[in-house]
């Protein structure tokens, strides 16, 4: 049988119960075209070191479990092909979040911020009978906005989240804009008020990190910019079309 090529994986390890400091373990994983980094992690966990901890679920880039730092960039392990990674594959957990074990981080702060922005539709009219009417154009504004899978890659990549732990972060702010842009949502003022404080949109330094890493092309930076624009326009009592985005 043909001997398979192997790739070296350098993986961040830390178990708060037994380790004083984090360290890196290296593993050699046989691979072929089509193998993803997540499958390589599975291989390591099943065959080389059972104690390796990482989250995984759908393995097709829609559940958002496996965001991690792979060779300099936050991405989904399941969508990253091993053959596309040059040299040793170095994997770190997401930043700004406490480490539970190895690549598993405590996502609670991330979700707490999501909860803080009222992430649900606030309709103006009571819901009765059939569906509300929304034109295709109105729906088209939401096209990438609703694609967020809450993986947290943007949150980990954002420098502002690093030094301001109260900063809402790209995902939550983009979610605000998702509802703000929804023609069925009637809580514009409320939503803008929620994000116009010093840990909200004006904290954003427009670094574009979130835009670069987002695996679903949600582009949180543009969403945050739209919210800023709307807040300014409203305080100047200028009528500013939502279409501007």
């Amino acid at each position: 049988m043909e001997k398979k090529k192997t790739k070296q994986f350098k993986i961040f390890r830390f178990n708060p119960k037994t380790d004083k400091r984090h360290y890196f373990d290296t593993f050699d994983v046989p691979y072929e075209a089509g193998m993803t980094v997540l499958q390589a992690l599975n291989y390591i966990q099943r065959n080389l070191d059972g104690s390796l901890a990482y989250r995984s679920s759908c393995r097709e880039g829609i559940c958002g479990s496996c965001a991690m730092h792979i060779n300099g960039k936050y991405c989904l392990a399941c969508e990253t092909q091993v053959i596309h990674v040059k040299g040793t594959v170095t994997i770190r957990p997401m930043a700004h979040l406490d480490i539970i074990k190895d690549l598993v981080v405590d996502m609670n702060p991330f979700f707490e911020k999501l909860k803080a922005i009222k992430p649900y539709l606030i309709p103006g009219d009571p819901d009765e009978g059939a569906e509300r009417i929304q034109t295709q154009d109105e729906r088209a504004y939401l096209n990438t906005l609703v694609d967020c899978i809450l993986c947290g890659a943007c949150y980990a990549s954002c420098a502002v989240n690093g030094f301001d732990e109260d900063y809402l972060g790209p995902a939550a702010l983009a979610k605000v804009n998702r509802f703000f842009m929804d023609s069925r949502d009637k809580a514009d003022e409320q939503r803008l008020a929620l994000v116009s404080d010093e840990h909200g949109v004006f904290r954003c330094h427009t670094l574009f990190n979130c835009q670069v890493v987002c695996p679903k092309n949600v582009n949180p930076t543009a969403n945050i910019a739209n919210l800023k624009r709307q807040i300014i326009a409203r305080s100047l009592t200028v009528k500013f079309s939502k279409k501007g985005m």
């Binding site: 008020a193 994000v195 116009s196 010093e198 004006f202 300014i232 305080s235």
Partner: peptide, 10 residues
């Protein structure tokens, strides 16, 4: 903390 409108900031 409390979130709310901050006109000065904007």
């Amino acid at each position: 903390g409390n979130r709310g409108r901050n006109v000065g900031l904007a």
